[in-house]
Design a protein around this nucleic acid. Structure first.
Length: 482
RNA sequence: GGCCACGUAGCCAAGUGGUAAGGCAGGGGUCUGCAAAACCCUUAUCGUCGGUUCGAUUCCGACCGUGGCCUCCA
């Protein structure tokens, strides 16, 4: 597999440190407020990536993947937000983590194998800081802060492709109290009154932002591991500092072998930010669009490129999803010969993903397969083998192709029973599905009597109630519109 | 200001030194009582200007534009 490595800036052939086993760490969220579309995007991308690595259809038959993704559950933002809300910081993050995990399930995101939290790894972090100090790359101040000595790291800046002079020119503001050098960053922050704190050799305090990720990734994946991922906005300073911290102790080139960064989400061509007021939360996204449509939208772009979220693009993704749903519909058992479609598309799919995880190209193969299935089905071919391949490939990308995604629980039972009454249909119970079936039976009867006015009226009424009716050779099919 | 990406049809988005995947939308058909879905056909000289080359959208340069980062945003 070839992947763009931020470290080298080039596409490299990825070889795991240990054959058949892959360790990957992805920077997770800081759960101080609701997650937004960008979080869904990074999570979807890495979810699909890991599903692919594990897939037995990947070259080599799939790998055993250890996926670690953290929660930064204590930092300035958490403390500030908790103070604003007058809440305990830990309560706040617990609530936000619970919400995010619920949303992750809604988005069909696989759970990471390990979800380390900073507050549960203070000892690991303190030990990591001690080793950095021992190696000569860290120093404590009289105030009880500990800083990383950036100038001690010869190749500082190698990940983000900058040098210390450049960075120094860009620094704004004051050097900071007790720092030897303006670019030095905090490994440990001395406690301030009222803030959560833990004991350490340098006095009570809490970890700096970057140390947690290098300490926890190495804790679970070893000093050297395969892949470290995250949003492109984390390259500097976060990931740069992680590299500096880790390699100060474990040596140059020892940390993550490949750095993968996903492009950021824009909203209508603009940066999504609170100051612009155009942030789309995951909650809003899930209320507006189907999970599979969201995933399709994300994966229709290449992971490294910025992705522009627009209503139009989302609508297009939704229609594309409908197309895939139509192809896997349970009407594939034609009387004719079995379809031979699938293997060629599968090969294209693999080829695309092997080439820097090109999900757009992989999806093109999937859509081509969908077209072939539809065409062959129309011709009476038994397309079930091809449908199985389509389901397999989309499953690798994490699409569920679950038609009930549209939310039948959202059906308006009251409106439906009124309809049933208007068309003089006995609907039995209040069950929405039963009512719809009864209405469709009434409509079918009308059609057989050539009473198309009534048939069309029923269809129109159902459409008003959010039910779309389509006639097929095998009877009417309905679905909840969205 | 510095560093780094990117700029492909109405929209989204792949890709290649030899005249450009896929999705959505549009137009024309087939099918259908009608519709929907599906299927078939159809819609681009790849930001601008130079250069290298037999030939560039693909390589190089400049310019314009968009985006990211420049100490705590996935």
């Amino acid at each position: 597999m070839r992947l763009t490595n931020t470290l080298s800036g080039a596409i490299e052939t990825f070889r795991p440190l240990e054959d058949g086993r892959i360790g990957i760490y992805v920077c997770g969220v800081t759960p101080y407020e609701e997650s937004h579309f960008g979080h869904a995007q990074y999570a979807i991308i890495f979810d699909a990536f890991i599903r692919y690595l594990r897939w037995d259809g990947a070259p080599g038959g799939g790998s055993e993947v250890t996926y670690v993704s953290n929660y930064t559950d204590i930092d300035d933002k958490v403390i500030d937000r908790a103070a604003e809300l007058g809440r305990d910081p830990l309560d706040l993050v617990n609530d936000q983590i619970a919400l995010w995990e619920q949303q992750q399930r809604a988005l069909n995101l696989q759970e990471p194998d390990v979800r380390p939290r900073v507050t549960e790894h203070i000892e690991t972090i303190v030990e990591a800081i001690e080793r950095i100090i021992e190696a000569g790359y860290g120093y404590a101040t009289a105030a009880g802060d500990v800083y990383y000595r950036v100038r001690a790291m010869a190749d500082y800046g190698k990940l983000s492709h900058r040098n210390i002079e450049e960075l120094r020119a860009g620094t704004r503001g004051e050097p900071g109290e007790g720092k030897e050098f303006p670019l030095d960053f905090a490994l440990w922050k001395a406690m301030k009154p009222g803030e959560p704190n833990w004991p350490s050799p340098w006095g009570a305090g809490r970890p700096g932002w970057h140390i947690e990720c290098s300490a926890m990734s190495q804790r679970y994946l070893g000093p050297s591991f395969d892949i470290h991922g995250g949003g492109a906005d984390l390259v500097f300073p976060h990931h740069e500092n992680e590299v500096a911290q880790a390699e100060a102790v474990s040596g140059p080139g020892s940390f993550a072998q490949i750095w993968l960064h996903n492009g950021l989400v824009q909203r209508d061509g603009e940066k999504m930010s609170k100051s612009i007021g155009n942030v789309v939360t995951v909650r809003e996204a899930l209320e507006t669009w189907r999970p599979d449509a969201l995933r399709l939208f994300v994966l229709e772009g290449h992971y490294r490129r910025p992705n522009n979220l627009t209503d139009e693009a989302m609508a297009a993704a939704g229609r594309g999803l409908d197309r895939l749903l139509a192809a896997v519909r349970d009407e594939g058992a034609g009387a004719g010969p079995a379809s031979s479609a699938g293997p060629a598309e599968r090969a294209r799919f693999v080829e695309a993903l092997e080439d820097d995880f090109s999900t757009p190209r992989a999806l093109a193969a999937v859509f081509d397969l969908a077209r072939t299935i539809n065409r062959e089905r129309d011709a009476g071919t038994d397309v079930r083998p091809a449908q199985a391949v389509l389901r397999e490939l989309t499953g690798v990308l994490g699409l569920t192709l679950d038609a009930t995604d549209a939310g039948e629980d959202g059906l308006n039972a009251v409106a439906l029973s009124k309809l049933a009454a208007r068309h003089e249909v006995a609907c039995g119970g209040s069950d929405a599905e039963t009512t719809i079936e009864a209405l469709l039976a009434r409509r079918q009867q009308a059609r057989e009597e050539r009473d198309f006015a009534l048939a069309d009226a029923i269809r129109a009424d159902l459409a008003d109630a959010g039910i779309e009716v389509e006639d097929t050779p095998r009877g009417a099919r309905w679905s909840a519109a969205r």
